[in-house]
Design a protein around this nucleic acid. Sequence first.
DNA 1: CTGTATCCACAGCGATACTG
DNA 2: CAGTATCGCTGTGGATACAG
Lengths: 129, 129
Amino acid sequence: MNEMRSIRPDIIRKIAPELCPVRTVIAHIGDKWSTLILSQLMKQPHRFGELRRAVPDISQRMLTQTLRDLQRDGYVEREVFATKPPSVEYRLTELGRSLVGSLQHLVDFAFTNHDRVLQARARFDAENG
Amino acid sequence: MNEMRSIRPDIIRKIAPELCPVRTVIAHIGDKWSTLILSQLMKQPHRFGELRRAVPDISQRMLTQTLRDLQRDGYVEREVFATKPPSVEYRLTELGRSLVGSLQHLVDFAFTNHDRVLQARARFDAENG
DNA sequence: CTGTATCCACAGCGATACTG
DNA sequence: CAGTATCGCTGTGGATACAG
């Protein structure tokens, strides 16, 4: 009657992790730089160098790579201006702004509860080793 | 006039990453198993073995470790019953339920926009190499 | 200015075996 | 049943040098 019954989520995850929507999206939140880049681009479009200065502790390599991944998934648009020397501008797409909007709830939670987490952590470490 | 001006976020992140609330919280969302465990515990409290069966593709090592981290930060409570053999029950704390609530917006986004992301990805890969 | 290429270190995670 | 201990692989990210 229900043939889907036998397709267990864990098997799907094992065979094709890219089919899990949550994983696909969270990939850009779990990595080290995406959220910082996104929140920076939320303010306004940035050129490559502007982003470097806005997030100074990122390496050039990781900035390039993170922007590329965000562009690939449709969160960021890249526009090249044929100036001399060339300049490139990055901005959020509608999808990107939507992602940041959904992410905002988590950010709010983080700021609201950061103290609670640190206290829980201290207590745990005191009770255990 | 404003002495905080010189304390730049990137310096803070470099010296003491644990002081960034967003990083602290997102650590449990970026890793491989936390969200799955949390959503499972959202349904109801689980014993250790129940969780293993609910998330069968997790190793025993990672289940133990993930639960420990979640407990340490105050998202999960652990209760030991002195039965024979012993049993242990894990449940969400109020803080844990709050976290899952904030996370839900992101999950909704993921399901709503998964297709869009995959399309963007396919287009990007077609245009580039 | 905006990238690419290469090399390397470390942390996350899985497999397996063992324990109270 | 509910863990711990050990080992090894892999992927992420940093440093550095080079290029259009």
